[in-house]
Design a protein around this nucleic acid. Structure first.
Lengths: 190, 190
DNA sequence: ACCTGAACACCGTTCAAGT
DNA sequence: ACCTGAACACCGTTCAAGT
């Protein structure tokens, strides 16, 4: 679960990537119920190999979530370039949400947090929150959003949006976008 | 799963109630991972008895959700008495959310919808939505909320609120209330 | 009708043997 | 170092026997 180990042997590295990809595909397809055996088979490795990299199913899910958090940080950083403070914040949320639309694995994970260990995610989350904090402060300084918002609210809103995204994924027209827009409208000062 | 069967034998009825209560307690305590064996033991019955009433774990969870939906309908109906249209709607959401604060079972269920069958819930949901529809229309007619809202948005917002409630249940001060307030603020017409 | 719990099946996880 | 898969353990579910 640490990030600093020396480079893997070439075949091991390839296996790791295949496992991650297969996990993403199968979790997205079948939700948390996707089986470890199947993921290993899909990746073309033995189960032992899967377990060598990820000690538990939870750890595997956690790894996928970490990856997303890192991507969220990239998106948020890009949005810092946007000049309008409210737009910067809103665009960050919209783009992050949009980026996980197809990823039921992540959506489920966000909603199932108790079911897997957060070990290792803390650092990614801190890095992400640092950027989000700046985005939020700028918007507040400009009077574009409520003064009582905290950084945790950002995560909470993303959690809520992700949940509705998953919840409503059967509906013809994705309604989670309106849910997000309602939240965004609610951010403005009264 | 139907509602029309003739009354159960007295002891069976008692057992059913004990099972439901125990399920609520243990799911709340341990989340979806609470075990069927443990629930049966907690209720003081054999597993066979549990399975006689609820063919699967999912069915058991579903039953608890149905109960909540029925309570939601009662709350919503009470809120129809409130004269201010926006207040009526907002109070309904606030009171419903408040009513499931301790019920991790329901919160998890709301977020885990794919993991259990919705069989039988449809009717309860329809009954609930009928009331919510009236609540919403009244607020819209008064110009108190956005014109583009649909009934499904209500459920979506409750889903989002429930998710954040669960997600944040470790935090010192429950922040889901602010999440809900942001949503409520966002409902107002622009 | 309803209750019970031993037995079964499924799937997450381990570990001894192999390269 | 890493890979493999048979074996184990856990827990959801069934079913034959009992009241």
């Amino acid at each position: 679960m640490t990030t600093d180990q020396r480079p893997l042997r070439a075949d091991a590295q390839r296996n790791l990537e295949r496992i991650t990809t297969s996990a993403q595909v199968l979790f997205a397809e079948r939700g948390t119920r996707a089986q470890m055996e199947d993921i290993a088979a899909h990746a073309g490795v033995g189960i032992g190999t899967l377990y060598r990299r990820f000690p538990t199913k939870e750890a595997l899910l956690t790894a996928l979530v970490r990856k997303r958090f890192q991507e969220f940080a990239v998106i948020a950083a890009e949005c810092e370039e946007i000049s309008d403070p409210y737009d910067a914040l809103a665009t960050s949320m919209r783009r992050q949400a949009e980026s996980v639309v197809g990823d039921a694995a992540f959506q489920l994970a966000m909603m199932n947090i108790d079911s897997f260990s957060w070990d290792g995610i803390e650092e990614d989350k801190a890095a992400l929150n640092a950027i989000l904090g700046r985005l939020l402060e700028r918007a507040q300084a400009a009077g574009a959003v409520r003064a009582d918002l905290r950084v945790e609210d950002y995560g909470m809103m993303m959690c809520g949006t992700t949940a509705t995204m998953y919840f409503m994924h059967a509906l013809p027209e994705p309604g989670w976008r309106r849910h997000l827009e309602i939240l965004l409208a609610g951010l403005k000062p009264t």
